[in-house]
Design a protein around this nucleic acid. Structure first.
Length: 419
DNA sequence: TCTGGGGTCCTAGGACCC
DNA sequence: TCTGGGGTCCTAGGACCC
């Protein structure tokens, strides 16, 4: 049996956890740039606030019902996530960290116990010890456990656990789940399935798996198997190495000139390069892109992208920034209202990769020394104490974060501020 | 006026190899 | 006059996830 442990309204719950006055109060969390809704407390859901709606569409409603809104605080959510996952490991030795607020766990070895009792106890303790309520669904496959989790959230809120452990429960769960709510089936595929008269998870479970593969893909074929209790998406207990590290952000206001966007790009590149080094990788390539506002019906649209190969796989920020800005020069064109710029480090390898380049001599050892010292200085004195001049200081492109809460768990200075 | 960010996997087709 | 078959790797684009 496989369990999925999922935090309820994770970002909203994190905010409520550190501000007791928010308990029982409708709370929403905004996307970066304070653009759209990405998390809602139960109270906010009950007032009809939908997921992913732009803020300007619900501003009135928020004012009317005094709904509290917060800018996303990923430092806080990331740290809370770490804490919750370490608690989970007390109860389940085999864990796959699936996302910031979800973990798959193996229930192997629990079969001689009262499974429901054990999982319910674990659920209560994870919720109480972290301050973030969680729900647990258990079934014989990942896809079915996701279904069980939905049922735990919707119908068994008080205990927060649901286990699909016989065929009767499985079929009932399938019949009460619309195809569009199925894990692995998105908007496009569910629309296509509807044309074949398939509307519920149960309908899909009855199709021939080869038909699913032929007409759709091996992904849907696996889903069909999983719905029938045949597990084909295994628990991944060893986290696979990252393949890419990316950063893109919308500007606080539209940009038209090259220089501020190059500055933003340099800053994002510095961030991904830091992340790269923290994980012990070097990047073999780098991709840069630009984008206009795809929601606009009148603005001219432009979404260029350029990928290049590093002369030698590297984690050296000055080189990566130089490469990124050169790439931006290739795709930048005057006359557009730009909404975002992004950078992705690709072809990641471990930093002992040792790939050389016959036609480029480089001072890898010197670079390693320099960047190690810069990282240390910045760690002790604050991010960007030493920075590339290209990163600038004005940051007029910076995203909006008008209602950001303190980084309660990771920054002492923030804790003092709220006193 | 105002609409997020960071990822993965799969597939088809082209280029290339012997 | 007539010119193969079996395979891999890479890339772009699509779809999905949270």
């Amino acid at each position: 049996m496989i369990g999925i442990i999922d935090c309820n309204n994770f970002y909203a719950s994190c905010e409520q956890n550190f501000m007791p006055s928010l308990n029982g109060v409708p709370v929403v969390v905004f996307s970066n740039n304070d653009g759209a809704i990405i998390a809602r407390s139960e109270e906010a859901k009950a007032l009809g606030i939908d997921m992913a709606v732009p803020i300007f569409e619900v501003k009135k409603l928020m004012k009317q019902y005094n709904i509290k809104g917060f800018s996303s605080n990923y430092t806080l959510y990331g740290d809370m996530s770490k804490r919750i996952k370490s608690i989970i490991r007390n109860f389940f030795p085999e864990v796959e960290d699936y996302s910031i607020d979800e973990s798959f766990v193996s229930c192997k070895g629990l079969k001689y116990r009262d499974l429901l009792g054990y999982v319910t106890d674990a659920r209560d303790k994870i919720s109480n010890w972290s301050g973030v309520p969680v729900s647990i669904g258990v079934a014989s496959t990942k896809t079915l456990s996701k279904l069980a989790n939905r049922i735990a959230k919707k119908r068994y809120r008080d205990i927060g656990v649901y286990i699909i452990d016989n065929d009767e429960k499985r079929i009932e769960a399938l019949k009460s789940t619309e195809i569009k709510d199925l894990w692995g089936v998105g908007r496009r595929i569910s629309a296509r399935l509807n044309k074949f008269g398939i509307f519920t998870a149960y309908d899909l479970s009855l199709v021939d798996s080869d038909w699913a593969k032929k007409n759709f893909s091996v992904v849907l074929q696996r889903t069909v198997y999983e719905l029938n209790g045949i597990s084909c998406i295994p628990l991944e207990l060893i986290e696979p190495a990252k393949q890419n590290i990316a950063s893109q952000k919308s500007f606080g206001k539209f940009q038209t000139d090259f220089e501020p966007m190059a500055e933003a790009l340099a800053n994002y590149t510095a961030r991904v390069a830091e992340k790269l080094r923290r994980q012990g990788f070097v990047a073999g390539g780098i991709t840069v892109w630009l984008g206009t506002n795809n929601f606009s019906k009148t603005d001219a649209q432009y979404f260029p992208e350029v990928s290049t190969v590093c002369s030698v796989p590297t984690d050296y920020t000055p080189y990566l920034i130089k490469r990124a800005v050169e790439s931006l020069k290739l795709i930048y064109k005057k006359g557009y209202l730009y909404k975002r710029v992004g950078v992705m480090l690709t072809d990641l390898r471990t930093n002992d990769d040792g790939t050389q380049n016959l036609f480029h001599s480089n001072n890898r050892n010197k670079e390693i020394e320099i960047i190690k010292r810069i990282d240390r200085i910045n760690r002790l004195n604050g991010r960007d104490t030493i920075r590339s001049a290209q990163q600038g200081f004005n940051h007029e492109w910076k995203m909006r974060q008008e209602t950001l809460t303190p980084k309660y768990t990771t920054r002492l200075s923030d804790i003092i501020i709220i006193k």
